[in-house]
Design a protein around this nucleic acid. Structure first.
Length: 193
DNA sequence: CAAGAGATCATCT
DNA sequence: GATGATCTCTTGA
């Protein structure tokens, strides 16, 4: 069952935790890809110095200020796209970064796109999974209930998980140490332990 | 295996 | 003009 808009309207921390064990589905002419979400990060609002929206409302961050349940996709380091799911109320900028998934369906397609045959290395990082799932900025703002890109709840309970500080946000002052990164315990498909 | 550099561009100053 | 919510490859012990 496709997660509805109301799911994304919960607090960002709750959404980030509950996304663990759900299934990211990407429909594409080349074929569909599905992955079980094993790692997420919460970016909790304008006061969060690690959140892009803490810099204010700009063309780039506009999507985060929109209603919950849309995709925020941005391009970074000249190479990689990052996939976020917008959360909370309209005009409150927050989102969950999807950092890693365990490949489930469309594995051959992922291998082609990543030209790497190691299953563990197909989508174990935010840039990698966007490559494997053919996610780029054309999906920025996409409604997660439209059916091109969505999260599927297969009725599994949230797995045991662990929280750590977020990755790559050393510039965020006191916010850099907040335990807003969540990963499934024991999963070998996370970006790092 | 750990550490470091390079790749490369949209976004904001 | 600087920098970043990254990844891969190379180096060296």
């Amino acid at each position: 069952m496709k997660l509805p808009h109301t799911f994304y309207q919960q607090t960002t921390i709750d959404v980030a935790k509950q996304l663990l064990g759900k299934y990211l589905v990407r429909k594409h002419p080349e074929g569909n890809t599905v992955g079980r979400i094993v790692e997420t990060e919460a970016y909790v609002g304008p006061q969060d110095l690690a959140c892009h929206a803490s810099k204010g409302r700009t063309a780039r961050t506009e999507v985060m200020f929109g209603p919950a349940g849309r995709a925020y996709v941005y391009f970074i380091y000249g190479f990689y796209n990052m996939l976020n799911l917008v959360t909370e109320a309209k005009d409150y900028p927050a989102a969950v970064l999807i950092r890693a998934v365990e490949p489930v369906d469309g594995v051959e397609l992922m291998k082609e796109r990543r030209k790497n045959h190691a299953l563990r290395n197909l989508a174990s990082g935010p840039g990698k999974l966007c490559q494997a799932f053919a996610i780029d900025r054309s999906l920025n703002g996409a409604d997660l209930c439209d059916g091109i890109l969505f999260v599927d709840d297969r009725g599994e309970p949230t797995p045991r998980f662990r929280a750590t500080p977020r990755i790559g946000v050393d510039y965020a002052g006191k916010w850099k140490d907040k335990p807003y990164r969540f990963l499934i315990r024991g999963s070998e498909f996370v970006s790092r332990s």
